[in-house]
Nucleic acid binder design. Structure first.
Lengths: 329, 329
DNA sequence: ATCCAATGTGTAACCGGTTACACATACATT
DNA sequence: AATGTATGTGTAACCGGTTACACATTGGAT
């Protein structure tokens, strides 16, 4: 591989001049510039990023820490982030934390040692103190951490309310909720939104809320129990789209028709929704946009621009499938 | 951030000694070692990876280039790779190529400049010459490039034959194939496998093969046309699971019942299969294993171990869902 | 007593860039 | 003619590690 030194020799100038040509900094005579450029071309010289990073203390790299890239919500976020980054000559490092605090911290450590310029993270366990202390620019996605940390998400509570309102508008009389894990802020907010919409209804019982994790089999089980114990439930708001699949499967196992006997609405708007039968009605997040706004915000932070907002709450939209249907009285 | 120099001063030794302690190389007196370790602890010193990389010309980083992480096959591969890497203190860079040769080359260029130690790639466009020339250890996944380049995949032809055999065994009499893009080796192999199984059948017509890409809407369209023109087709082998979803949707649009009127089998075994209704019967690849074997092979290559095989062909298994069903005569 | 190997440590070059600073020249201003 | 500013280029320090090599000491073998 050719180095800046070889280029300098070949072009009969100093390395400083070559560096100036490369970075368009300082003064360089037009003649000299051309000569250097020609030599660079001839030697197919590409500057070494590592050497540059060492001096500049920055690597043109950012890390994305997600619980599990296998969860279909995250690939789309990752794709959006990578699109923004690659257009700005940045590179993306992918980390799977399994929602494990130790792993998250390990990654932070490693990233710091690698002069990673910033981190986009989906976490329920990291504290603002820890993050502050690391001193790396950071943006949270999907799950809120602390007012001091920029976050890109949707208004989960509002979205949940919309979901319940929609079920009501289609004629559902008794609406249950299979919620996500307690320690996850977005799941909590969705639950709170659901609660606001139903708690003053005469039919509401706390037994209508069941807790699942984001795993399908467990959701099936929980839902079966719910439906067996409450056969008059005619609408279910699932904590997310994967859980909606579980809910639908459970209902089918019990011989319920969807949407005739039971309406199901999910949350997230992952592409899975359009692949199932029936297609799932869902509160769709602008997932790609979440990723790209997060990436853009992080770059703003890194490059020292002022960011307009600390907390972006993007708009959800309702995406109607066949898992819900307007029912007559 | 503390540096090796600060540690050296504090411990009243030279940086060389600190380095020896860090890397367990050369001779270090036990007393000295303890003192250095103590200072490292006190200062919470973490060696700078970038500086080390510059000298060692390696970054403990590998890149994964996939067409699009949004395609559900790849997150699982990525996850497996990352699991292997992180257990060996390596880090994963994620790149989306969109099957675009220019983007792939751009990534290779950047990775080289970053001293990335190796690349795992899913590509249809890169030539062995180009790869050879870059001089970076590389492993291909899913799509074969050249005998000279290690590749981890399944035997697509064999798998396709199994798919068709299975459809036959359930009583299908006229089996069509919605194949994937022509330039993709795995799609081509699956097509060839299909062909071997059907070409000598009295009922076979070349019209039973239609070309889709891996996009759902297009698959629906192509399948509708196929079924309209050939109403007696009673089994379809789809090029992959996503396309199987499209096939099922198309069939349903035409009022066909699955599996009663039409059996459908996919290929890949992505988790989507278990989420649809009916669940999709598919030739399941050991996706996670593909990723982990690829990662392990790449590390072997990087760390100079001899690799046993250039071409790993892992075993497929048939995963039975409800999209196929044994039919009476 | 002599020699050699094993042990222990420090100095300085090196990896490949960036940039502060020094220095030289050209040209405009007073 | 003297001064100041813009232009152009090179030298060398620096980023934070690793390691070749030099040198010193110790202890066992001959």
């Amino acid at each position: 591989m050719s180095t800046i030194k070889k280029v300098a020799e070949e072009a009969k100038v100093s390395v400083a001049t070559v560096s100036r040509v490369l970075n368009s900094t300082g003064y360089v005579n037009e003649e000299t510039r051309k000569k250097v450029l020609k030599v660079i071309e001839e030697l197919d010289y590409k500057p070494n990023s590592v050497a540059r990073s060492l001096f500049k203390k920055q690597s043109m790299t950012i890390a994305l820490i997600v619980p599990n890239i296998t969860n279909p919500f995250f690939p789309e976020v990752a794709r959006a982030i990578e699109d923004v980054l690659s257009s700005k000559e940045y590179t993306l490092i992918l980390c799977n934390s399994d929602d494990n605090s130790e792993k998250e911290k390990k990654y932070f450590e490693v990233m710091k040692q690698k002069y990673v310029d910033g981190v986009i993270v989906v976490t329920s366990t990291l504290t603002p103190q820890y993050i502050e202390e690391k001193g790396i620019p950071i943006v949270a996605v999907d799950r809120f951490i602390d007012p001091s940390i920029p976050c890109v998400s949707v208004n989960n509570m509002e979205g949940a309310k919309r979901a319940v309102q929609y079920l009501k508008s289609t004629g559902c009389k008794r609406i249950a909720h299979i919620r996500g894990p307690k320690n996850i802020t977005s799941a909590e907010d969705r639950y709170l939104g659901y609660l606001q919409e139903v708690e003053s209804e005469y039919w509401f019982e706390t037994d209508y809320v069941r807790c699942g994790n984001f795993n399908i089999d467990q959701t099936i089980e929980v839902t079966r129990k719910l439906l067996e114990e409450n056969p008059d439930v005619d609408g279910i708001f699932a904590g997310n789209d994967m859980m909606a699949v579980g809910v639908i499967k459970a209902a089918m196992q019990l011989g319920k028709r969807i949407p005739e006997d039971l309406s199901v609405i999910g949350f997230d708007g992952i592409s899975l929704c359009k692949m199932t039968n029936p297609e799932i009605t869902t509160i769709a997040q602008p997932i790609y946009e979440i990723g790209s706004v997060a990436a853009q915000t992080l770059l703003d932070l890194i490059e020292g621009r002022v960011i307009e907002k600390k907390h972006y709450q993007l708009e959800v939209t309702i995406s109607k499938g066949q898992s819900t249907k307007t029912r007559g009285e």
